[in-house]
Design a binder for these strands. Structure first.
Lengths: 344, 344
DNA sequence: CTTGTGACTGTTAGCGCTAACTATACCCTG
DNA sequence: CAGGGTATAGTTAGCGCTAACAGTCACAAG
């Protein structure tokens, strides 16, 4: 009967293994591997050689517990399936790159309950900071953010009161600006097409602002159409067809995002509708995709990359002045008229 | 002179705080919060109440160190910016949902060096498993995967030898199949448009297979065009224009992905080219976006969601039989002829 | 020769939690 | 009522690492 080896040869390695292999104390190994404190070149060599040849991978769990330091930043966003959050992520990653900090992403699918549980889960890993989309959270989530004791940056939106810092644009104002531009271009019978998502607060705020802009000119929305799920491009076609069938005299369509806007644009072109003569179109976001369309859709850049960069800078403590917490950075989206709004 | 409080009131809470607040031992609190072991209802109530009112968030770092268990699954993928990996992610998340396991994503940007460092970083958190795109890794990365002592699933591709398990399709075969379908439809002057990415091994294998398929019919590629970076849709337009200017007698264009294919399709339609009569088109991936296009691009579904599901099942130990490690699951993409290949 | 100083390395004591065991009650069975 | 379950709670000993401190040694200055 073969006896099992006393020590499992495939047991995961620890500092002690490296320490024994290189003939120095665990502490010295730790110092070498973290590049901290003074270690002689010869010792360093020995240790690095031993670590490499054993294939040692440090255990950050133990390290984090002992040092009370975690190089993780929790990033909590609603979705990855349109291009807006991936771009925010790029800004975050690029900025965090040389800080030793690492983003960890959680997705909420626009559900407050999921946001709460994702946040709880992430906080239980004691990250160095939290970047979270939006200013609206469940009471419990809000309480967790308040008492986390780490930097919190709420991103995308600044129409509200942040827990700590915030970086974003005013969606309300963005909606209003678009309304003003549309009215200035002479359009009067305006329809809105958007998502049926009660928890997409930013889309709601844009619509609120848009309505407000119309109201100031004595106008109201002539028709509305909402969708949920499915291919946004396809939905854009379908909704556009539907709203134009129902209300043929519309002279402008405002889409809550560029993807359905692009679908609408393709539909209109295929139908031979005169854009922007008889019908103007506009979306929101400024996604790169639009560059490839036959005609450029009017839109508004949401400053996604910049938002990511600034948020990461706050977490990394890179912001210039000595501001501690409570910083609010407002960015200003630019209207890109493209080819789907009449020139005034 | 005010004396600092002995205990920082905003010091993060520990089990001990909850234990003191509820008058039971730390162990009992731990049991309640993890729902493990027998605890009387009255004690459970007391503990839960205390934990909630204090706003206690468990420290998973300490928990993981003590229990040698981490509920994290490392997912390492090259990119999030086209829709292919987000869809794989959905499959993974949905499957992991009810297992207590949580995916953590790392992005490599198709760089072997970044893959290596992301992998190292993730392994240092001692995840329960690794899902990683592709079969090609640096020697160091390969060694880490080999000796990690946890389930490894290499996804997307099965043309090669996996470290442990693999789930994916044969890109080589996919390319060959497409070539066969194109030839069967009578096209002969075939051009290829793709990315200039030496480390996108799957795109390379598809092209290899495609060339092989052509060769069997005595054909070779009539022209090729490559791009790097930028809006894929726009690049698709530009490249299509370029290749058709250079080689006007092409009768088919095979794109390495649907996004540039869509750009090409829009260009051809705008130019009034007879598709699929004089010119046939095909892409690869089966992205949902295409549903919204005026005409459906021929493509091949890469089984993205299924790949995510199966990979997660392997990690979660959900696979039906008692297979341990070394499992290879091959999926078979279906050709979707759409409207851009002549019917035979 | 003593003392100090800087460069290097080792020792000790946890970080906050959980596995594994031990200690009580309390109840049943025969 | 002994013997032995069973449900519940507590105790002990780490998990693998690092902060903080404590040497040790060589060499220069006094």
């Amino acid at each position: 009967m073969t006896k099992a080896p006393v020590v499992d040869p495939r047991r995961t390695l620890t500092l002690r293994d490296v320490s024994e292999a290189s003939g120095v104390s665990e502490m010295t190994v730790s110092r070498v591997l973290r590049n901290r404190g003074d270690v002689s070149d010869s010792t360093r060599e020995k240790v690095l050689h031993a670590a490499r040849s054993l294939g040692y991978v440090p255990n950050k769990i133990a390290g984090a517990l002992a040092s009370q330091r975690v190089n993780l930043v929790a990033v909590i966003i609603p979705s990855m399936s349109n291009m807006v959050f991936p771009e925010v992520m790029m800004g975050i990653s690029d900025t965090l790159e040389d800080t030793g900090l690492q983003p960890v992403v959680g997705i909420t699918n626009y559900s407050p309950e999921r946001e709460e549980s994702v946040l709880y889960e992430m906080l239980s890993w004691r990250p160095s900071g939290v970047i979270i989309a939006g200013l609206e959270h469940s009471p419990a989530a809000h309480a967790m953010l308040e008492s986390a004791g780490i930097p919190i940056v709420e991103i995308m939106d600044i129409d509200g009161t942040p827990v700590d810092s915030a970086v974003g644009i005013s969606h309300r104002r963005a909606g209003r600006q678009m309304a003003e531009a549309i009215i200035a271009a002479g359009y009067r019978r305006i329809g809105f097409l958007g998502t049926k998502m009660p928890d997409d607060h930013r889309a709601r705020k844009r619509l609120d602002g848009f309505r407000e802009g119309l109201a100031r000119a004595g106008l109201t929305l002539a028709d509305e159409e909402y969708y949920r799920g499915g291919s946004a491009l396809l939905k854009g076609r379908e909704m556009t067809e539907a709203i134009l069938k129902r209300t043929p005299d519309l002279d402008f369509l405002y889409y809550s995002n560029d993807m359905i806007g692009a679908g609408g644009l393709l539909y209109c072109l295929a139908q031979g509708i005169d854009v922007p003569g008889t019908l103007g179109l506009a979306g929101f976001n400024g996604v790169e995709l639009l560059d490839g369309l036959p005609r450029k859709l009017a839109t508004m850049d949401a400053c996604r990359r910049e938002i990511g960069i600034h948020a990461a800078e706050i977490i990394a403590g890179k912001r210039p002045t000595g501001v501690i917490g409570g910083e609010v950075i407002e960015l200003f989206p630019k209207l890109q008229p493209g080819d789907t709004i009449r020139k005034v």
